[in-house]
């Protein structure tokens, strides 16, 4: 009885520690963002006076809204393109027999193993040559370098597990590869699409190094860079209030996305199509 109680207590203690460690930084950011003036430099764990001044300041001064729009545009296009290319590549990699398929898959995966900094210089030259420096396409292009490998890889693995007979039935029904992918496979791949799409979105949304390197004007920046380059009133003043408010604003879309799509991740959707 007592042992059980102790074990229960230990379990919840552990859970609380994990939750606190995971959530505290974000909680503290929210807390800080709601302070104003010199209160910023007092260490509090509970909100005392709530002020939206930081939020108003972030949203009305500077180019933050524009940066938010850039981030949204870039991340969305990256996800859309990655999924489109990922699904079509996955179809050929999982279903069409050709020489060197295994090697190609390994190559795709190994591309994602290079550290960003290793490809930075080459990518910079490429982007300059393409004439897209300091525009959203530069970042979209750069981000696909790391979103495509895992998108293709995960979708290929997932698609390989879909029963071949379903595809063959569709072929006999007269479906073209595009109809098979769009009408038969896509609806079955929701869980994989949502998962990889979310990961790609988060990766593109949070990316810093490429965004810093491939943009030069403040209107072209994405949010992470914009926040890092926030300037205070004086040279040595870091505007913590604004930084925290901006951080909270950029985190909220991610949380919302995860919550919305969590419901869409329906496991076992393939049930009943084949076998008993």
């Amino acid at each position: 009885m007592i042992a059980k109680l102790v074990r229960g207590a230990a379990f919840y203690a552990l859970v609380s520690v994990i939750v606190v460690v995971a959530v505290f930084p974000f909680y503290y950011a929210i807390l800080t963002s709601l302070k104003s003036g010199t209160a910023l430099f007092e260490v509090d764990y509970w909100p005392k006076a709530l002020s939206l001044a930081n939020y108003v300041s972030v949203l009305t001064t500077g180019t933050f809204l524009r940066n938010l729009g850039n981030s949204l545009l870039i991340a969305t296009v990256v996800v859309a393109l990655s999924l489109l290319l990922g699904v079509t590549a996955a179809y050929s990699l999982s279903r069409i027999r050709f020489r060197g398929r295994g090697l190609l898959l390994i190559t795709i995966l190994s591309v994602s193993m290079f550290p960003q900094i290793a490809v930075l210089a080459g990518l910079f030259e490429l982007i300059r040559a393409l004439g897209i420096y300091n525009t959203p396409p530069a970042l979209i292009f750069a981000y696909m370098i790391f979103t495509l490998p895992f998108t293709v890889w995960v979708l290929t693995t997932f698609m390989r597990d879909l029963p071949v007979e379903i595809e063959e039935a569709a072929i006999i029904d007269g479906a073209t590869p595009w109809i098979i992918v769009s009408k038969v496979f896509l609806p079955l791949m929701w869980p994989a699409l949502v998962t990889t799409g979310l990961l790609a979105f988060i990766a593109a949304w949070n990316e810093f190094l490429f965004a810093l390197t491939f943009t030069s004007s403040s209107t072209q920046r994405t949010v992470p860079v914009a926040i890092a380059l926030f300037g205070g009133a004086g040279q040595f003043e870091i505007p913590w209030g604004n930084i925290m408010a901006a951080s909270v604003i950029v985190t909220v879309p991610l949380v919302v996305l995860v919550l919305v799509f969590q419901r869409k991740i329906v496991a076992g959707l393939t049930g009943g199509g084949v076998k008993g």
């Binding site: 029963p163 007979e165 379903i166 039935a169 569709a170 072929i171 006999i172 479906a175 959707l269 199509g273």
Partner: peptide, 28 residues
């Protein structure tokens, strides 16, 4: 296959899992 005028029934049924019975039959 589709132009050969054939229909095939598979051992594993191979129905489209996300379509109703009606849509399964109407798909082709």
């Amino acid at each position: 296959p589709a132009q050969r005028g054939l229909a095939m029934v598979f051992q594993s049924y191979a129905l489209y899992p996300h379509m109703t019975v009606y849509d399964n039959m109407a798909f082709g």
